[in-house]
Simulated scan of single mutants.
Amino acid sequence: MGNRTSSSNFVLLGLLVSSEVTEVVFTVIFAIFVVAVAANSVMIFLIQVDSRLHTPMYFLLSQLSIMDTLFICTTVPKLLGDMVSTEKTISFVACGIQIFLYSTMAGSEFFLQGLMAYDHYMAVCNPLRYPVLMNRKLCLLLAAGAWFGGSLDGFLLTPITMNVPYCGSRQINQFFCEVPAVLKLACADTSLHETLMYICCVLMLLIPISLISTSYAPILFTVHHVRSAEGHKKAFTTCSSHLTVVSIFYGAAFYTYVLPPLFHTPEQDKVVSAFYTIVTPMLNPLIYSLRNKDIMGALKKVFAHCSPAQKASSEA
């Protein structure tokens, strides 16, 4: 059974779009992929080269962009390849690698979103002590903690999924190796595996959400007592961007992994999975950059520095 499981390939059924709109869907997904990778790369570049962005908030934001880039690169290239190919198989090993990378990136982002809420709490509620409390060493520890928590998620979910015997249908009703879709193909009782996966996913959501809740409660209290209109606006802009991203990402994850299967169909699962694996990595940098004066200022500074007129004046 073990040899048969590991030597056989899985078949990814994909998004199951009609042949008439395949080219349109391919073009849209490819455009989203390019925009997501470009936007996150630009975000990372700006945060690195602009000294004004060398702050804890932007350091954590650069980590989010790295995670989003790796996250979308885990699933979309394979999806695009399958859409133009008649061979839609994925090997047992490649499926396990995809599950590990996908789970690691998703788990890391869960924890990082919670740590970003803590950073906002320190910035709003302890502004004078913020540079001392959120020093570089602590920022590195927070980022390392997020990556470690995500990799722990990957190391837990991957063995849970790949150590189950698969001897029946090899068709995964999804466009990537998502854990719930893969476990449906098992030819053994997976109730224990599903329970362990459920507990793992609940903890991955509960811990960051608890940190976000405990961070934003004093933030709201502090902002309520701020008399400055500029202070209100700055706090609202920073926190609203973060809460928007949190709502989108956590809501989709809750729907897929926590909500009982009776409340959603495989077709609905594909739509939600496509949203948070393809669309969300593109939305995150756009949400944070378009409403952020510092990011837009750094971008204008780079454009001005690279413009022909600026080069001519500097040479003169």
Rank of each mutant, 00 (worst) to 15 (best):
residue 286 L to G: 04
residue 194 E to K: 01
residue 120 H to I: 12
residue 133 L to K: 12
residue 123 A to D: 13
residue 28 V to I: 08
residue 302 V to C: 09
residue 167 C to Q: 14
residue 16 L to M: 05
residue 101 L to R: 05
residue 129 R to K: 09
residue 22 T to S: 05
residue 26 F to H: 11
residue 107 G to K: 02
residue 83 M to G: 01
residue 304 A to D: 11
residue 255 Y to D: 13
residue 296 M to Q: 08
residue 156 L to F: 12
residue 67 M to A: 08
residue 301 K to G: 11
residue 86 T to C: 09
residue 240 S to K: 08
residue 212 I to L: 15
residue 19 S to E: 05
residue 206 L to F: 10
residue 190 T to C: 01
residue 158 T to L: 03
residue 309 A to V: 08
residue 73 C to Y: 15
residue 304 A to P: 15
residue 56 P to K: 00
residue 9 N to V: 03
residue 159 P to L: 15
residue 19 S to Y: 04
residue 311 K to G: 12
residue 82 D to L: 01
residue 64 L to W: 02
residue 274 A to G: 03
residue 139 C to H: 04
residue 208 P to F: 01
residue 258 V to N: 04
residue 304 A to V: 07
residue 50 D to Y: 02
residue 15 L to Y: 01
residue 306 C to S: 09
residue 226 V to L: 08
residue 116 M to N: 10
residue 168 G to S: 09
residue 165 P to H: 12
residue 35 V to K: 10
residue 122 M to Y: 11
residue 147 W to T: 06
residue 225 H to Y: 10
residue 7 S to Q: 14
residue 182 V to M: 06
residue 166 Y to I: 08
residue 147 W to Y: 07
residue 298 A to Y: 08
residue 99 I to Y: 00
residue 259 L to M: 09
residue 1 M to F: 15
residue 40 N to V: 07
residue 136 R to V: 13
residue 227 R to W: 07
residue 108 S to K: 09
residue 47 I to E: 01
residue 222 T to D: 14
residue 6 S to H: 10
residue 280 T to D: 09
residue 143 A to C: 02
residue 248 I to E: 03
residue 293 K to C: 13
residue 271 V to P: 00
residue 124 V to D: 08
residue 278 I to K: 00
residue 70 L to D: 15
residue 23 E to Y: 13
residue 203 L to W: 13
residue 268 Q to T: 10
residue 149 G to W: 00
residue 262 L to M: 06
residue 33 F to C: 05
residue 315 E to V: 09
residue 312 A to T: 14
residue 39 A to L: 11
residue 164 V to L: 12
residue 143 A to Q: 01
residue 267 E to L: 05
residue 308 P to Q: 05
residue 156 L to N: 15
residue 116 M to G: 04
residue 59 F to A: 01
residue 117 A to C: 12
residue 3 N to L: 10
residue 58 Y to K: 00
residue 64 L to F: 03
residue 35 V to H: 13
residue 2 G to E: 05
residue 100 F to I: 02
